[in-house]
Design a protein around this nucleic acid. Structure first.
Lengths: 333, 333
DNA sequence: CTGGGGTTCTACAACGATTGACATGGCCTG
DNA sequence: CAGGCCATGTCAATCGTTGTAGAACCCCAG
């Protein structure tokens, strides 16, 4: 049925091992035999069996990418980028939706897919996995997003404090004085870090800090942003600008503003974070922090692969993703 | 390092075979031994080695989902749904971005991931794979979307002709007379089928068919929709409604309309297809054909699994995905 | 022409799980 | 008490690939 190594060997008139050697670029092979073998491989359309190879080598060239939900545009774009980066290096990505379950738990539960995968890129949305890898099973792991306090993993993320500072400062620079924040989360996650940058910017601008303008909300999707914006508009003194901690929140907020008949950016300016495609085409188009997702993916994969094939004990790395502030209609008149 | 079957056996005080029997639900086992074994499995956190199992059994419980690009919202949502449906049945989905390369080619190239995957769900955007599976390697394949002419695969899709008819008829019913279509593609793909429904509806309504109102465009993304809409507005007699063959096109079109200062739906009504989340929160929110994606995923996975484990020679199946027309602001004043 | 060193290739045993044939002993039934 | 079923154990083979060890060969120096 399936062609296997021995079929190729038979056809090429060499031993099974020689074929294997050809495939694995073993140095000492005559160009003659190499040619013979390659001809046989081509003729039979032979493809190595990954299961067998992985069983024998203990390495599969599969990595996992764990994200909260792939239907969320940011994560979809991230997944696409990681897949591309991995494919370029000949490895395959398994995308894992953690779906709100405590992701750390889930990974351990999954048992790393029965030892198939070589490592994992983990992108938690809020909770950070402090305890993964304490198990002996530990495979290499690269963490994306905010780093947990006592992290012991390689880590790739935007400097969220700085980026949030920039975003907020931009709002200040166009003359806004009552700047709200949507997406302020608890814990040590994204929300907290971005809030830090936001507050810092307010302080730097000499603006008062009004707790009523910090909206926690329950999630990071459009409805959450829409609801938070409604709450802000209901305030006795509504804001003249909003910094949303991700683009979905911002798009939800824009929707509320449109419904309320308010003009953006004239009445309320809005800034997001992530630069998802939806924001670029929305009207008004969304000003946002744009992390370089290709860079992120490229380096996350690179870091993980480095870990997998070699220096498992090298020092922990911490990479900062380049970003830009994309100024669009939601802040520029 | 890793716990294996024999470790479990040792701890439970039984033979390896018995442990294997427990795991594979062999019927004749005392509840006592079963309990012992299960305790040992839990204690050691044993996870069967997927590679070994797959090598031996010839089945991996992995399936692939091939989509053009996962960053596209419709496909992201589809991928999420398929992953969920598969996980429910204990199987894992590998998502494959075909990225515009002739997907058929690519699949064959990939050699089905070295025999790892048990089958594939294939969702081409335009070109239909007529020749896949002619190779002897053929694994079960379920096709999503428009069926190619001489298809020999199981197939799950919305009745696009009917849905397009409904969408267009809806525009007629709100009084529109010059209804354009964006996304008319060549070949036997999505574009052609939806155009058929569109034309049918025009004819049924006794409206003239103006070729100038059928825009082919180059792709299925926002920029394509925006460009097509610009072209339509440049006509001596612009349309008063547009049926876009997917939501991204529609969102692009809406953007152009907003830029042109036209009111939706008063000046131009817009209908999309797919019901992606962006459309629901856009302002105006987008009227669209909403296929039941969960149903689609559930049945595609079901069909594939049926094929994989059993009647490989059963008759070809053809499932029609339920859909609704979601009427929102872009057509309802 | 003989022996050492390198090259080129091969035989064999693993990797971990599953499966089949078969043996064993215990218990129940008739 | 014999025959049958049940629950398990033993043993060996198998899936396809690769690492280890070593065989066979060639070339060249002494």
């Amino acid at each position: 049925m399936t062609t296997r190594l021995s079929d190729v060997a038979a056809r090429a008139g060499v031993s099974v091992k020689t074929v294997s050697n050809v495939i694995n670029d073993y140095p000492h092979i005559t160009s003659q035999t190499r040619a013979k073998v390659e001809a046989a491989i081509a003729a039979l359309d032979y493809k190595p069996n990954v299961s067998a190879r992985s069983l024998r080598k203990g390495r599969s060239d599969f990595i996992a990418l764990a994200i909260p939900e792939m239907a969320s545009p940011y994560f979809a774009e991230l997944g696409a980028a990681v897949s591309r980066a991995a494919k370029k290096r000949g490895i395959t990505v398994l995308i894992d939706q953690t779906e709100g379950e405590s992701a750390a738990e889930k990974l351990v539960l999954d048992g790393m897919r029965g030892q198939l995968i070589d490592g994992i890129i983990f992108s938690p949305i809020t909770t950070a996995p402090t305890r993964i890898g304490t198990a002996g099973t530990a495979k290499p792991l690269v963490l994306l997003g905010e780093r947990p306090a006592g992290g012991t993993f390689d880590h790739v993320a935007v400097d969220s404090v700085k980026a949030s500072f920039d975003a907020t400062t931009h709002l200040v620079s166009i003359g806004r004085r009552r700047i709200a924040a949507i997406g302020v989360g608890g814990g040590a996650g994204t929300g907290a870090v971005r809030r830090k940058g936001y507050r810092k910017a307010l302080k730097a601008a000499g603006l008062p800090h009004d707790p009523a303008l910090e909206l926690a909300g329950t999630g990071y999707h459009r409805p959450d942003g829409a609801a938070s914006m409604r709450a802000l508009l209901a305030l006795p003194e509504p804001p003249d600008a909003v910094f949303c901690f991700n683009d979905l929140l911002a798009l939800g907020a824009l929707r509320t503003l449109a419904d309320a008949g308010l003009s953006v950016p004239d009445d309320v300016a809005v800034v997001g974070f992530d630069d998802i495609e939806d924001g670029r085409y929305h009207s008004p188009s969304l000003t946002t922090i744009s992390p370089d997702k290709e860079w992120l993916a490229e380096n996350a994969v690179g870091l993980l692969l480095e870990r997998i094939s070699g220096n498992a004990e090298a020092a922990r790395r911490d990479l900062s993703v380049p970003y830009t502030l994309e100024i669009r209609e939601s802040t520029a008149g």
